[in-house]
Design a protein around this nucleic acid. Structure first.
Lengths: 155, 155
DNA sequence: CGGCTGGGTTGCATTACGCAACTTGACCCT
DNA sequence: AGGGTCAAGTTGCGTAATGCAACCCAGCCG
């Protein structure tokens, strides 16, 4: 993107996309949410160019969506964590996940499932537990990759 | 974006972003959802370059998110409408709108409000009516720009 | 001492974007 | 009859972002 802003737009959708609308950004947030915290781990998981990943992480930290914390000194090594603002993107990710699920052909069902930690019910695209009806947040849910068979079939 | 796909990603979030994750795309969908249907109208509302708008509209039609319908012949003029798949993006837009509202400073409140057509209640970021509790879809809701005072103050 | 790991930075080629100008066909004004 | 406008794009060009590979540096490992 030439400039990552949308000048003249007063709507909050545009504001949101100015921050998380750049290529890779939401996928980085998704990965951090599912437990990938380190540079190389993110790079391998996403296949993004290292310089782009570096730029995105920097921006996400500036925007207070991620926090960069050292987990050891000499050599200094860092992990990235979601802030409250970052965790608050969960409903948006869940909504996109739902849309993608509904409008992609998956012969063996969707490749990722989300469950309510507490009761084990599956989570709707509105982020509501389909078993107990509770409206959930990032902390209440657990994402599971279903890719086992697919990966096994590939080899 | 260099290529608009995310190779190697099996997650539906990535699939969704391959289609609607390009710059401008979601804002075009938002605009069509709020009643902008014609090329020039979209161009003026968004300030996007005409060639880019042209490319995005073409892709959205290919992806069955928009439908291009002639509203007159000679000269042929077209309008763009949302398909079911396009309308189904509403929860994602609402979630992003909510996030943007919560994490942007608005001295006079958010610039866009969404109401349940039937009962007039305001709509939460989960797309649920806060008055009657119903889970809504694009057709049940009405978006209102609040920019009146701001525009008046500018002149 | 050579290699590996983690977390990046640098340089270069490719691609997409922003902007302005042009096109096409029909209508509108005088 | 000539000039202007509108809608819906298309074309061409310069610039900015991306992808890729190579490089860097500090510590640890054998």
């Amino acid at each position: 993107m030439l400039r990552h802003d949308y000048p003249g737009q007063t709507c909050s959708i545009a504001k949101a996309l100015e921050v998380v609308g750049e290529r890779w950004t939401l996928l980085i947030v998704r990965d951090v949410m599912t437990g990938h915290r380190r540079f190389d781990e993110l790079q391998k998981s996403l296949g993004v160019a290292r310089n782009v990943l570096s730029a995105r992480l920097q921006r996400l930290v500036e925007e207070d969506i991620l926090e960069r914390r050292p987990y050891q000194e000499s050599p200094e090594r860092y992990e990235y964590f979601l802030t409250e603002k970052g965790l608050d993107l969960w409903p948006s990710l869940i909504a996109l996940l739902g849309w993608g699920d509904r409008h992609t052909e998956y012969p063996d069902g969707p490749p990722m499932l989300v469950f309510h930690k507490e009761c084990g019910g599956s989570v709707s695209d509105r982020g509501v537990c389909e078993r107990c009806g509770e409206t959930l947040t990032a902390r209440d849910a657990r994402a599971v990759r279903v890719a086992e068979e697919a990966l096994a079939a590939d080899r």
